[in-house]
Amino acid sequence: MFKDKPVKVLLAKPGIDGHDRGMFVLARAFRDAGMDVLYAGLLPTPQEVVDTAVNEDVDVIALSLLNGAHLTAFKKVSDLLRKKGIDDIAIVGGGTIPDTDKPKLEKLGISGNYGPGTPLSVIIDHVTKRATESRKKKMGSG
C-alpha cells in the first residue's frame, strides 16, 4: 500500500547502430517485470541521456550499443552524471562488448555489460539489483 514505487529505468542507445528492435524487446521485458520504463529515443546525445535521467530521476540508466563505440559513449554518460554530483543513478551496459573492455567499464561503475543472447532474466535481475542500491542511496540520509 505504501512505498511501492516501481524501479524506474531509462533505456538509451547513445549512437547509431541500427538495432532498435532489441530495445523494444528489453522495454517490454522490463515493464512485464514491473518496472517503469523510459526510452531515450533516436540517437540521444550523452548530454540528453543524462538530462533525461536526472529530470525523470531514474534508478538505472541502461545503455546499449552494438557499434563498438561503447567505451567512449558510455564513459561520456558516466562522466556527465558524476559532474552533476549524482551517485545514486546506476549505469548498466550492454551490446557487443569485448571481454577486454569490460573491466574498464566496470571501473567506471558501468556493470552488467551483457552481450546479445543473454537471457532476459539475467539482465532483469542485474538491473533490479543495481536499482535497489540506487534506491537505498536515494533514501539514505534523508
Partner: peptide, 12 residues
C-alpha cells in the same frame, strides 16, 4: 499495465 504494474512511459 494492470498485469505487471510496470509501465512504458511513452509520452516523452
Amino acid at each position: 499495465s494492470p498485469f505487471s504494474k510496470g509501465s512504458i512511459l511513452g509520452n516523452r
